[in-house]
Simulated scan of single mutants.
Amino acid sequence: MTPRLVDGAALHLAGIRRRHAPGKMPAESRRQWMDLVALGNLPGQVSQIAYGLHLEAPDAATVDYFTAVEVAGFDGLPDTVERMILPAQRYAMFAHDGHVNDARTLRARIAAEHGGKFGTPDFERFHESFDPISATGRIELWFPLAP
């Protein structure tokens, strides 16, 4: 499987960050996504494209996951919303059209085949056409290239 190399622009992201036990991640992340949708459009939101970032947790027994949307800036955001600036960098991007569970399987396969070649954080980019009810549609898996 060969990725497309993409120069990603810097992103201002706003959303919800939570820590999960790896075995509970699928069920808990679904609730996290529902909570993000419940926030409605955030001030300065750029589009309906959503991001799911896999962040480094302080220990190997947990996973930090950040569900977010791109915003033009952080002014006017509610205090309860997490903020992050993702710097511009080069990525290996793998496209997936289908169910989100299959994208998780693809992510695990990419990690097994390409382990150690990528930096952090990696993320999913859910296109505006993604249907959260059926959990299907266009998902891109972005992995930062290690310097």
Rank of each mutant, 00 (worst) to 15 (best):
K24A: 08
M93V: 13
P43Q: 10
L55C: 11
G40N: 08
R125I: 15
P87K: 05
V100F: 04
G40L: 09
V37I: 14
I85Q: 13
R18V: 02
L53P: 11
T67N: 04
W33Y: 14
A72T: 12
H127Y: 12
A10L: 05
T67S: 06
T67W: 01
A21Y: 06
I133K: 14
D122Q: 02
Q45A: 08
A95Q: 07
L53D: 08
F66P: 01
A14F: 05
P3T: 01
R30G: 02
V63N: 12
A10K: 03
I110V: 11
W142R: 04
L42K: 05
F118P: 08
H127G: 10
R18N: 11
S134W: 09
A111R: 12
P78D: 15
D131Y: 00
A10N: 04
V69Y: 12
A68R: 07
G119I: 02
T80R: 13
Q32D: 14
D59V: 01
V100Y: 03
S129N: 01
A38G: 10
A146C: 13
T120M: 12
G8K: 03
R31W: 12
I85D: 12
A72S: 13
R83V: 13
E124R: 02
M84V: 02
G40P: 07
Y51I: 11
E70G: 06
A60L: 06
L106Q: 11
T62E: 09
F94G: 10
D97Y: 10
D75Q: 12
E28T: 12
E56C: 11
T62L: 02
N41W: 06
E124P: 05
P43F: 01
G23E: 14
R18I: 08
S134C: 06
S29W: 13
D122F: 15
S129R: 07
L53M: 15
D35G: 04
V63Y: 06
A14T: 13
Y91A: 05
A38T: 06
G119V: 03
T136G: 09
F66C: 00
S29G: 00
R19F: 05
T62Q: 05
L36C: 05
R90L: 08
F74L: 03
E128D: 14
R90K: 09
R18H: 11
M93N: 07
Y51S: 10
V71A: 06
P144N: 01
D79C: 00
A57M: 10
D102K: 09
G119L: 01
R104F: 08
V81E: 12
F130A: 04
N101G: 04
E128A: 15
E56N: 10
R83C: 12
P121L: 02
A27W: 07
T80N: 03
F74M: 10
A38H: 06
Y65V: 13
N41D: 15
H99C: 08
A135H: 13
G40I: 02
D64G: 06
G73F: 05
